[in-house]
Design a protein around this nucleic acid. Structure first.
Length: 224
DNA sequence: CACCAGGCAAGTA
DNA sequence: TACTTGCATGGT
């Protein structure tokens, strides 16, 4: 099912990347001091403005609980700490489920993952209640430095609006399409996703379908 | 006031 | 399989 990856097949997606990088420069993603903080952020930012998730992260750090074992031991404090990130009851359960997994299986250390394949870890993450494809891939890419392309709402919106992909394609299909057409580089994947979020926030909002000032400029095509 | 934000799970037909 | 709904706060 994976078709051959010729040079010409990925030029469009690579051109988009180049335009975005020239427009915005490096984004230094994921914002976070440690892999664990990135993991927490990946859960807290689900369908939530990063500002709100970031405030919750700051509260956890300020309380001295940005540590897997400590946070698990003090899990009853999580709802109060993350309330402003929204969906806080659900996210508290999600975070606790992840903490149990991470502490029990890996002692809360990223080094525990070495030797495990990306697919294995991904399947483990997806088996945790509250961790879906985007959250799993964000953790894999930005906390564990695994080469997976993170697909999110901005990715789908931007590419669909420019006519590069079908808006209704599911996560796996979109991810496969993108990965097939890009050089296999972890660094590139990380920067690209960050740039898509940046571009989406500024130029590809839901109620601004024309993207008049989009850095992709003339690449804009009528939706099909 | 309405709408949106770096999703996911569960329910319905 | 393909929609729809609940989850919740804070900014614009």
């Amino acid at each position: 099912m994976a078709r051959p990856n010729t040079n010409s097949s990925y030029t469009t997606f690579l051109k988009v990347y180049t335009k975005l990088f020239r427009a915005f420069g490096p984004q230094h993603w994921w914002p976070g001091d440690t892999p664990f903080e990135i993991m927490v952020g990946a859960i807290l930012t689900q369908n939530t403005n990063w500002r709100n998730a970031s405030a919750a992260i700051g509260r956890i750090k300020k309380t001295g609980l940005m540590d897997p074992a400590r946070l698990l031991a003090q899990h009853h404090r999580i709802p109060g700490l993350i309330r402003t990130s929204g969906f806080y009851r659900a996210k508290s359960r999600y975070l606790r489920a992840f903490l149990r997994y991470y502490v029990a299986n890996y002692r809360g250390k990223v080094t525990g993952f070495s030797g495990k394949s990306t697919d294995t870890i991904r399947n483990e993450l997806l088996s945790i209640h509250g961790i879906g494809p985007e959250t799993a891939d964000s953790i894999l890419l930005y906390a564990l430095a695994r080469r997976v392309f993170v697909v999110d709402a901005y990715t789908r919106r931007i590419f669909a609006r420019h006519g590069f992909i079908n808006e209704k394609m599911n996560y796996a299909g979109l991810q496969e399409t993108i990965e097939q057409e890009l050089p296999k580089s972890t660094k590139l994947y990380g920067e690209y996703h960050a740039l898509l979020v940046r571009a989406g926030k500024e130029f590809c909002r839901k109620n601004e379908p024309l993207c008049s000032n989009c850095p992709l400029g003339t690449m804009l095509r009528p939706a099909r």
